[in-house]
Design a protein around this nucleic acid. Sequence first.
DNA 1: CTGAAAGCGCTTACAG
DNA 2: CTGAAAGCGCTTACAG
Lengths: 328, 328
Amino acid sequence: MVLRGSPLVHADTRRRVEEELSRQRYVYNRAAANLRRRTSSSIALVINDLSNPFFAEFAAGVDEALGDAGYVTLLGSTGESPQRQQAVLASLMEQTPAGLILSPAEGSDVAALRQVLGRHDNVLLFNRELDGADWDMLALDNEQGACLATRHLIERGHRHVVFFGGHAQSSSCRQRRSGYLRAMRDASLLSRSIESAPNRQDAAAHTAELFDDASAPATAAVCYNDSVALGLMAGLMARGIRPGQDFAVTGFDDIAEAELTTPSLTTVAADPRARGHQAALLVLDRIREPEQGGRRLIAAVQLKVRESSGSAAAASDSSNIPFPFLSP
Amino acid sequence: MVLRGSPLVHADTRRRVEEELSRQRYVYNRAAANLRRRTSSSIALVINDLSNPFFAEFAAGVDEALGDAGYVTLLGSTGESPQRQQAVLASLMEQTPAGLILSPAEGSDVAALRQVLGRHDNVLLFNRELDGADWDMLALDNEQGACLATRHLIERGHRHVVFFGGHAQSSSCRQRRSGYLRAMRDASLLSRSIESAPNRQDAAAHTAELFDDASAPATAAVCYNDSVALGLMAGLMARGIRPGQDFAVTGFDDIAEAELTTPSLTTVAADPRARGHQAALLVLDRIREPEQGGRRLIAAVQLKVRESSGSAAAASDSSNIPFPFLSP
DNA sequence: CTGAAAGCGCTTACAG
DNA sequence: CTGAAAGCGCTTACAG
């Protein structure tokens, strides 16, 4: 009764019990309590890889919000392998988590997922849509974000704007490109896409393709994400092309580095840490009200084009660290 | 017996049982098994913050190795707050993890830690020394690494080399500075240190101090870590000083960005993912052999000065993405 | 191979 | 307030 905070126990008794507890270095066994109460105090978080800053920030946000709510985070990473994802999920399910936040690996098989997740109700998908899945889902409005970024460039006079980077078959890339295509179509401009792996290295390696057509060389690129944008900027500099002056670049995600350029890289802010909080609150809500409503689909998270702060930023302004990369 | 893979059960029976198991969507409850067997299949990992790429990589390495060994990772973050660290650890201890990997928050109180960890044997400290603690420990050889970096600069002709950034009172900063001091003393050079918070913003804000003494301005800086180095490089550029050409910079940690500069930033490689693997194997070993030996102190992890690849790197060489930051 | 019993550390329900 | 009993889903030990 002392442990469970019952009001029935006399203050003196409580004190004596607590003294003995700490004397014996007693630590409460929540697993035993969970077993008896048929509850769980953990939530599984499965992402691709923590070395991606976007997911690392997201995970930090999830963990923070879960911790505040008294839950503990069970971590799993898939490394974008559906096979590994199955194994990781199977292992995590044995721990009977109260909920699961899953950023599915590319190429996930919904039937296999349904199989391993069993009749687990409190599942929230993050970031990637899965055809045929009916779990709750928190997504970025990729289409709208890329459309805003593209319009931003068009409004600044660019006509040869290329969609740059990413695996064409991934759903987030499809959505972002579709937003780009919409903005280009609305402005009656010709569109063009260049594929790459969604990382710096490969993005840099594809830089030359922007200028393949010497009669109509690109003057701006809407990049699949910030990593690609940073890679492209590096690739441009290697060719003596100054990003932001000779060529305009936008990113997507707003990773920490994006803010540290001068003028800061124009990018679409996904605020992954806030997404993490949001994801945690969504599963917790689902756990508290298991039968409430049907599938929840939340896609309109705050996305915005951040205006670059301009090259006039004073060098002494420490809140705006200058870098040579900019978008006009 | 089927569940536990007993050889005593007939193949036919096994098959029938397994069929029924999957028909009922049975999932093994490892928490119950752990309770009865008085074992645990989880290991707690407590770090400062996943938004630091060094810790994110470390966490990824830990999680990977633990997963391969059949363990599950319980994540906790302290945000460098000893108070929050106490709360997080208390909550994690209730989950009866088999072991704990802890990168202690700055200013951790060993007595308080001992209190919350109880008589938990399988604890591994990572990255930060704690006076009076006798848990296993995995550390970087900060002293040696900084000494190597400093010698590297001295060998290239620099005489006014400053130790730049980091909180002077943190143990890792003390150790790195001590390595710097050793190298400077060995070369009969005057040493000088500049403090900053260990991040880009604040590092950039302290750039001017390098040139306070107009009669003997610094020509090179051994930075506390890569974040500080990147911030300093930004601060230099803002003043029209080209890092790598007009001023030499070295980092520490070898985060992903360090490699992506051209010539790549000379830095001391701590290989955090490999440290994660190593940490996981160390606790697992401790768990398997609880009584074996005393305290294990491992500090000689692979540290090396990585030579910058030189400005001759071809622009078309995609394996070496060019950036404007370099150290000579 | 089968079956029944006890126990891990808790919570719940109920009798006093 | 106190105490005894049952049960969460497993494992262990033992009798048949």
